[in-house]
Amino acid sequence: MKTSVIDLGLQPSNFELTQALSAAFSQVEPTLVIINTTGSTGVNKKVELSTSAISISADLSNAAVGAKPGDIWSLLLPTNHIAGLNVLARALKLGTEVVGVEGRADFTAIVPTQLHRALTGDIPLLEHLQNCKAVLVGGAAVEDSLLEVARLKGIEIFTTYGMTETSGGCVYNNVPLPGVSVELTYSGLIKIKGPILASGYQDQEALWLKNFSDGWFITSDLGEIKDGKIFVIGRTDDVIISGGENISLAAIESELASNFPDVNFLATSIPDSEWGQKLCLLSDAHIDQVKISSVLQNKFGRAAVPKEFLVVNEIPLIGIGKPDRVKASTLIISAQR
């Protein structure tokens, strides 16, 4: 049986993507959706998701928030990411079309950065969220203080946890969706099983087999389980999530080393209410911050522009040369006081 492919890397329009998903949901023939995402080493991965997994994820999400046929989702996220694609899929399942921030919607999905902006001056976005029956917030950690303010403003929040390999959010308000199992490995890593899992990585079978074991997808997130609820307590790799975008710290440093070979850099992050994790940059020499920002934005996009710069005498290292990101973060925080 021939497998059809929807490659988000080809940047189909929202209309084209909706048409392709609609056709795939109504056909028996398998269809794979290819979604680019960034791994812990900065190497790009092309995740293969079946439209069956995306369809199941959409049904579970609609059920979790109480969405009924005829209800409307607003699309406030790019559709080359799983979160934006999922909004299109949920709307299809309800028989409706998505609207923008200016339209009336029953449900929407955003990242913490958007929630922060809604609560700090973006009045049209705030009013849009207040008028929704439920707002999914995921893609990065969201501070409890931000959630409290949002709820005081009358926004009904569902926090979500997941990744491209799990068809996006599969844990809502710290509870796995029906049919999704979440456990911890012996080393404390979160592992996930269910019909929403990806089929593999395109042309990277060895990497997929490393992350997939006995039906479980092994994440890079450390977690803990309390009273049936899952909590993420950290990451084991050097990828941060800032404004809902994955940023490889190693890739940032490699790009800067290529462009500015006479300067040593260390990329790190600190918690931030707007960005979730704020990208920061240490250097052992004074640098042109505008030029640095331009290089990184051109290579990786706007989210990769450092929000804080700090010049130090020596780049903090561990042992024989491993970057000490914890020390670097401490230096950034101390410099802000």
Rank of each mutant, 00 (worst) to 15 (best):
M1H: 13
V5H: 07
L10I: 02
L17H: 02
V33R: 00
L49C: 13
S50L: 08
S52H: 00
S52E: 06
A63H: 15
A63R: 15
V65D: 10
G70N: 11
D71N: 15
D71L: 11
G84D: 05
G95S: 06
V98C: 13
V101Y: 00
E102W: 07
T108Y: 03
A109D: 08
T113E: 08
A118L: 06
G121Y: 11
K133W: 01
D144A: 13
S145K: 07
R151G: 03
I157G: 09
T160S: 14
G162F: 05
T164W: 04
G169N: 14
P176I: 00
V180L: 08
E183D: 15
L184E: 12
G188T: 09
I192R: 14
A206K: 14
L207D: 12
F212W: 10
D214I: 02
D221C: 08
L222C: 05
K226P: 06
I230E: 05
F231N: 03
V232W: 04
V232L: 11
I240C: 06
I240D: 13
G244I: 04
G244E: 04
N246L: 10
L249Y: 07
A250D: 14
I252N: 03
N259A: 15
P261R: 05
V263K: 00
G276T: 06
L281K: 02
S283P: 01
D284V: 11
I292V: 15
S294H: 01
V295I: 14
V295A: 06
A303R: 05
N313H: 03
I315H: 03
K322Y: 08
D324K: 01
D324G: 03
R337G: 11
